[in-house]
Design a protein around this nucleic acid. Sequence first.
DNA 1: CGGAATTACTAACGTTTGTTAGGTAAAAAT
DNA 2: ATTTTTACCTAACAAACGTTAGTAATTCCG
Lengths: 194, 194
Amino acid sequence: MDTISRKEQIITTSAKLFRQKGFEAASMRDIAAELGIEAASLYSHIKSKDEILETICFRMADELIKAIDEVNDVYFNAEEKLATAIKNHVKIVTGDLDSSTVFLREWRRLSAGKLAEFIKLRNKYEDGFMQILVNGENENVFDAPDKKFAVLTILSAVNWITEWYSPKGNMTPDEIAEHLFRFITTGLRVKTTA
Amino acid sequence: MDTISRKEQIITTSAKLFRQKGFEAASMRDIAAELGIEAASLYSHIKSKDEILETICFRMADELIKAIDEVNDVYFNAEEKLATAIKNHVKIVTGDLDSSTVFLREWRRLSAGKLAEFIKLRNKYEDGFMQILVNGENENVFDAPDKKFAVLTILSAVNWITEWYSPKGNMTPDEIAEHLFRFITTGLRVKTTA
DNA sequence: CGGAATTACTAACGTTTGTTAGGTAAAAAT
DNA sequence: ATTTTTACCTAACAAACGTTAGTAATTCCG
């Protein structure tokens, strides 16, 4: 039986509290209390509070980038690419809601150096989506007057699910992804038949 | 010459710093330093740090609700309503980027009582958009399988502009609103002519 | 002119913060 | 069986926090 290491427990618990109260408001003493130990004991496993935040943010970033790279490598059709990219994103985000929320909300509190590094990864992920839209334009299936704008808007939509998604809700991650794909590709307007 | 009251200066400066560093990370001493006074002097004008956050959040909420109510009162056509609602939202948000960002990002730090009040206003605003979608469905111009979902997605898109908009950028608020309206109503997909 | 606000100050308070030092008992490794 | 490592502890630190008390100078108003 492979138990989760204490370090992982600390990270998981921290993600939960960072999401609930915010990075600054959740103290080391809060985290320790949640684990039933003293604050000072945390330092047997981690170097600093900052290190916890970095671990959470960069793990999520890496996971998302790996997913979008795979999509751009494997699929050919732009529409299929977009559908899969959205599905993957929703799956990753809903799969670890605490970490995802911290990743999306608290990355600003990263230390100066790590912040620059993080933003590079963020841009890389955005570029992955950008490539899909470029493909789509070449294939004449997608059309956006401002592709950078479109990418940011798409990501805002898929990221917002962290604000309301609950595993106990009545939509599965795949259903959410489907809804989002539909909304992003066809919008609200009723198709004027013929 | 009507100078801006010191209290307003404090609120404006706080909004700027709350946006930059976050509510908890921006200290009273930071705010005071920005104004060239001592931290204790702030308390001649305001009751507490919380009061500043409350003022910022509720002002923005009131302004947005006033705008959506007006739209729902004045216009008849759902499409026109949505276009105007988005235009107003973008105008308000870009008009005071610091306050808007705090309103969108830092409202979670409101004290328990004020938080509940705030969420009510937030729901009211969402209801304003919901009504537009209901109108649109009745008029047979809009079609969304899950209207609550659609409202949240629309708002996520219009709110995300605080993350990248700059007054020095090459898009005016009206142009942004137009792009958003287009994206929200027709999506990415190329219209299959005939 | 004289009293009342207004706006700022210095000094200090009690808390909370992240973190370090040094120690102890149990478990694992040799 | 002895050493080493792991995982926790207590105690304490220096710094930063929001805020209060009390006071002096300036401005406003009758």
